[in-house]
Amino acid sequence: MGQHGAKARETLLDAAEELFARYGIDAVSNRRIAEHAGTANHSAVAYHFGGRDELLEALITRHLEDTHRRRAVLTEQLDDGAGLRDLLACLVLPWVDHLASLPVPSWRARFLHQMRAVPSMQSVLQRSAVANPVSEDLIRRTQAAVGDLAPAVLHGRSWILGTMTIGVCAEYEARIQDGAETPNWTGVGYFLIDSCAGMLSAPVTHPGDFLPQPSPVYLL
Rank of each mutant, 00 (worst) to 15 (best):
A16W: 14
R140M: 08
V45P: 11
L200Q: 04
G208K: 14
A89D: 01
Q114K: 13
K7V: 13
H36M: 13
T165Q: 02
L211M: 14
Q77M: 05
D178G: 09
L88M: 03
S123K: 13
L102M: 12
G187F: 01
W95C: 02
L154W: 13
L64V: 03
H4E: 08
Y47N: 15
P203M: 04
V204W: 01
P214I: 02
F111M: 14
A58R: 06
G24R: 08
G208C: 15
T39S: 11
R141Y: 03
S101W: 00
Q122G: 08
Q122S: 10
A117Q: 12
G198P: 05
H155P: 03
H48P: 15
V124S: 15
Q114I: 09
G51V: 04
V188H: 00
S201I: 07
P207T: 04
T75Y: 00
S29V: 11
V124Y: 07
I193T: 04
I139D: 01
G81T: 01
I160Y: 12
A21L: 12
L93M: 14
L88H: 02
C169E: 05
T186R: 14
A202V: 08
R108P: 00
V45N: 07
R70T: 01
A89N: 00
Q143Y: 05
A44I: 15
A21Y: 14
R31M: 07
A131R: 04
R116E: 06
A150P: 12
A15T: 07
R110D: 06
T165K: 01
V146Q: 01
Q114F: 09
G24E: 09
L138K: 00
V45S: 10
A129Y: 09
G162F: 00
E171R: 15
D137K: 11
I166P: 07
R9W: 02
F20P: 15
K7T: 10
H63E: 03
L64T: 03
S195H: 07
P216F: 01
L102P: 07
R62F: 05
Q126D: 15
